[in-house]
Write a protein that binds this DNA or RNA. Structure first.
Lengths: 134, 134, 134, 134
DNA sequence: GTGGTCTAGACCACT
DNA sequence: GTGGTCTAGACCACC
């Protein structure tokens, strides 16, 4: 799992971490039950503070993406991903709203917007996700 | 123009302001050339500091949504909205990506996602924007 | 004398006025002794406040560009333009410095900068300045 | 990096700051990738409010002169300076125009003006920029 | 420690 | 009246 961080971005590093891991799961590169590096080793790998990795893992755990065991370490939750709750839908809605509004303002058509969503969907799911490295 | 702020949200107030004004333009409630309240009056109205409103206006000005006219005050840019630049598309892409990824993880189908985008699009554009029920 | 004002500019209107009148003199469109419109009529013409025109004229008078007579009204100083004083040179220097510095940073060569100065010089002096309207 | 501010000047402090930092880069005293003092420490050093320094840094960031690194703090953009865009040329042109016009009015010859530009160019680039007299 | 955000209150420049 | 600038002081998020 390659993590790419942008230290200049105004997006917090822990958020970038969370996003990348979720993307990894979405793309199939990370499978259910698959172990993740320990806080310590991941922090060393990508050159960030322990706290930062810890915060990312904590958030992922809270949302039900990963399990953290004292012994076995961190793994993608083997029992499956969190469901589509009301709350989740509301969050998606509120995140999407300003994006759609801005697109409308600038004259980006609805279809163009949908095309972009489909493109991104494709980009994520069509990653080389066949067993990692067959 | 009714502004709704969530003071508890972790989204900065000035960002909420920016988003709401962009939504107002997208929905047609705010028309090109239409004046916006002065920094001070809007700040008083919504109960925040004038600097907060000022920051929102400054950002909107930078992006080409509004003009700060020396005499007429602040108006929606009468010469039209900013165009769909490469940079804008890239921003949309990077904002959309984590949303799509999370949807995939949770088993929200692509069509469901597109439906939500269409719904939001409809919600924004089908606001009662006929000059106040004329 | 056509005055072009940009109400969106962050340059004060009175400064724009001063600049345009100085340009007019530099280009020869405005000649020594030539009358300028009264504060009242100029303000009406270009649609700005009396105070604004008044301030511009006051500054021009202070610097020795114009004379203001109760009776004859406002005229370009018939006795000639203000000289190149030490003070003026210092002002030019301090105004030019940040412009030159920024050009250097961005990799604009010294010659390019000089070319631009020469171009502007040409633009100003080669305006149709033959007796106003021969 | 020595910063000299004129608190009496009608040029905003944050603008003076921006100019001085750009001059520092142009002169070579500030090198690509070199760190700048933190907002707070610089503010304390030069005796202004941290918001004033913040505004200067924000502007420099917007124009691509500096990067605000999440961990390393503020640094001169190590990837180089912003390019000479159309927009930049237009800005230079409009800033130069009144300066040239005034020079013409006062009888300062074109060559004198160019000499001054060359002088300033020399002053900036010939600063002792060899890593502190190595 | 850093920068980011927000407040409260002030003064000034401009129109 | 407007927006622009600056100050002083606070809290928070991030690292």
């Amino acid at each position: 799992m390659i993590i790419e961080l942008d230290m200049q971005s105004d997006i917090p590093i822990y958020t970038q971490l969370v996003n990348q891991i979720i993307e990894g799961i979405a793309s199939g590169r990370l499978k259910l039950g698959e172990p993740l590096p320990s806080v310590r080793s991941l922090a060393a790998d990508i050159g960030v503070n322990l706290h930062t990795v810890n915060k990312a893992y904590t958030l992922l755990k809270q949302d039900g993406y990963i399990q953290v065991h004292r012994q076995r370490g961190v793994v993608i939750d083997p029992e499956g991903m969190p469901p589509v709750t009301e709350e989740f839908m509301a969050k998606q809605h509120s995140q999407l709203k300003p994006i759609v509004a801005e697109a409308i303002c600038r004259g980006m058509g609805k279809q163009q917007l949908i095309d972009m969503v489909e493109l991104i969907h494709k980009e994520i799911t069509e990653t080389d996700n066949e067993k990692g490295n067959a």
